[in-house]
Simulated scan of single mutants.
Amino acid sequence: MKEYRRKQLLERVNREAATIGASIPETIEVQGEPIDLREFVFEIKRRETVPPGERERVERAKRNLRRERIERLDRIEAGQVSYETGAELADAIIGIDRALDALESLEPADVEAEAERQDAVDTKRWMNFLKQALGREDASSSRTRF
């Protein structure tokens, strides 16, 4: 493959908006095993949250997809494949990125605990603001005791 073609493929894969309009591949081979990627992603996305029992499965899938993405990108970077093969690899990488984006956007399993934690942080921030605004931030520490 010519250098400028290799660079075009790499730019296409690394483009920030590469996944816009891209579809998740129906199947993809990860470490020699065919995976029904689209079905897996849609199955997980159908739920509002990922149950704790499924969380490990999703994390393992994301790790495997990231590893597969790196391996395919390395093949393009090495330039030892034809342009046609490189284009197929680039398409697959963009599909993997699309799947990873979908899996990364899943909400945490314990939404209520996260909301409570955020409320506590917001309350503390608000109380600190009020103390500072009312000039009572260090009132107890600045008093002199006799």
Rank of each mutant, 00 (worst) to 15 (best):
M1L: 08
Y4C: 03
R5Q: 14
R5F: 05
R6G: 06
K7W: 07
Q8H: 08
Q8P: 02
L9R: 00
L10E: 09
E11H: 03
R12Q: 14
R12K: 13
N14S: 12
N14A: 10
A18F: 11
I20N: 08
I20M: 06
I20E: 14
S23P: 03
I24T: 07
T27H: 14
T27F: 14
I28T: 10
I28C: 01
Q31W: 09
Q31V: 02
E33F: 12
P34I: 07
V41Y: 13
E43D: 13
K45D: 11
R46H: 12
R46N: 15
R47P: 04
R47F: 05
E48R: 09
E48W: 06
T49M: 11
T49K: 07
V50G: 03
P51M: 06
G53L: 05
G53C: 00
G53V: 07
G53M: 02
E54N: 07
E54V: 03
E54P: 01
E54S: 00
R55N: 04
E56M: 07
E59T: 08
R60S: 09
K62Q: 13
R63F: 14
L65F: 01
R67W: 08
I70P: 00
E71C: 02
R72P: 01
L73Q: 00
L73F: 03
D74E: 14
E77S: 15
E77I: 06
E77K: 13
A78H: 03
G79S: 05
V81M: 08
Y83A: 11
Y83N: 14
E84R: 11
E84C: 03
A87H: 10
E88Y: 00
E88S: 01
A90P: 14
D91R: 03
A92P: 00
I93K: 04
I94E: 02
I94R: 00
I96F: 08
D97V: 00
L103E: 07
L103Y: 06
L106H: 00
E107Y: 06
A109I: 06
E112V: 12
E112D: 12
A113V: 11
A113G: 05
E114K: 11
E114L: 15
E116R: 08
R117H: 09
Q118N: 13
Q118P: 02
D119P: 01
D119F: 08
V121I: 05
D122K: 10
R125V: 12
W126G: 03
M127L: 11
N128R: 01
F129W: 09
F129D: 05
F129C: 02
L130H: 09
L130C: 12
K131H: 15
Q132I: 07
A133H: 15
G135M: 02
E137L: 03
S140C: 02
S141V: 10
S141N: 10
S142C: 10
S142M: 13
T144I: 13
R145D: 15
R145M: 15
R145Y: 15
